[in-house]
Design a protein around this nucleic acid. Structure first.
Lengths: 262, 262
DNA sequence: GTGCATGTGG
DNA sequence: CCACATGCAC
């Protein structure tokens, strides 16, 4: 039986609700991770997802950030913070078990510029995440880490690597921090299926005509442990959405798995 | 040859542009007066109107008020302020000559409450308008005064005259001020064609379900001098627009004239 | 450029 | 309830 998974930085769930519902209707993923829902729990349109046949797990915050997982079956287990000791950390992390697979959904800080304190926070976030994986899981577990990681891992993942060298999203320090988390036991699923494809998942609103001119970044990722990678059939970026009327600046990434190979 | 005229408080031209363009496309008025465009000249979507075959004359202001006239032919003469001595008066007045007919488009102050200084300003505005008509025109001229007058002239023009007695829009002082301007030589064209109709042009957003329950006011008017009244064929309120998706709180009023009778 | 928060105005 | 202004973040 096939199992479908997707991740999408929606940039405001209230503004993007029609787009997301239509995408769910068409693609029927078993699990969809969303980032930048930009809503508190009380403002998240839970009813609309339930009516579409999806269960909602979410970690909200007023105005910024916020992550959610919607799934055909409710989470078998759920964790809403990376750091249980810190009750008012930003809403950038949620993890749940679905059909026996642990799904970790993150919205990694963007970091502003490499000089900004926010950049240090980004690196720290990735290091905390690495320790979190180490302490709870084994690379042989069924585990998916997905979301807006805000790092373009290689030069192929930016529209103009020369121009973007050392810039936010491409800085060696963040690439290395991301790489270190992956080295624990993750495979970049899009890159596994498409080793040489220059395919982006984000086009900045602020760059004039960025989508039309394909001035993008691959910042949204599906990372999986080895057993999950071996069960994977495909991983794709649905850039079509970005060309429509009121798009998010990001676009969905999805993957399909053969559960019998797991 | 028939000549079509309309007035519409759009409540923000930028928010209402698709609605207005579709209405123009369908109804093809020779002249449309708009109020509450809520835009400065530079922010008014002139290109969209030109593409639709309309010439634009406007008096804008940042954020509030603002009036415009769009017309199949450009204005033969144009006046943009009621009080030429006062350069920073609110953008509530524009007048132009089209096909030999003078069209005066006003957004009369709402007045807040009868106790508020804004109410005095409303009465004064109507009195200044009366003097303006007296000084420049004769009741025998071809003249149309239209717009959001913000007065329900008679009890029939409010959903609940008992409840609204003395309230803003129905207060005796503003009814009298409006009546005094009309007494110079204007005929209420909707009332001429529909003497006993209880038909509203405004339904407050803030009253729950006001449109569905028809809790409205007739505040938008087409006033004409006697020769124009004699050439008139019909005057109607297009309340259908108010029932759609993102409506203005007001709805268009239109009239048709036989130019050969003029 | 876009979404959201808050404040003003109707 | 709705539109617009300003301010913030990305």
């Amino acid at each position: 039986m096939n199992w479908k998974f997707a991740t999408f930085n929606v940039n405001g769930i209230r503004a993007r609700l029609p787009v997301v519902l239509q995408w769910l209707e068409q693609h029927q993923p078993d699990v969809l991770c969303m980032q930048e829902i930009k809503a508190q729990e009380k403002d998240f349109p839970q009813g609309a997802f339930r009516d579409a046949g999806y269960s909602v797990s979410l970690r909200g915050q007023k105005s910024f950030n916020g992550v959610a997982i919607v799934s055909k079956k409710p989470a078998e287990e759920l964790l809403c913070r990376l750091d249980e000791e810190n009750p008012d950390e930003e809403a950038r992390f949620i993890a749940g078990r679905f059909d026996g697979i642990w799904v970790v959904n993150t919205y990694v800080p963007q970091g502003r510029t490499p000089e900004d304190p926010a950049f240090r926070y980004k690196i720290d976030f990735l290091e905390r995440l690495k320790r979190w994986f180490e302490s709870r899981f084994d690379p042989g577990d069924r585990l998916i880490w997905a979301g807006d990681i805000n790092v373009a891992p290689e030069d192929i993942d930016v529209f103009d690597p020369k121009r973007m060298e050392g810039e936010i999203g491409c800085h060696p320090a963040e690439r290395q921090a991301f790489s270190r988390v992956k080295s624990w036991g993750f495979i970049d699923l899009y890159r596994k299926h498409h080793p040489n494809e220059k395919q982006f998942t984000f086009w900045d609103y602020r760059l004039p005509m960025s989508f039309k001119r394909n001035l993008g970044w691959r910042l949204d990722h599906i990372l999986v442990t080895d057993p999950v990678a071996r069960a994977s059939l495909e991983c794709m970026v649905d850039h079509e959405l970005r060309g429509r009327d009121k798009p998010s600046d990001h676009t969905p990434v999805w993957a399909e798995f053969d559960l019998e190979k797991l």
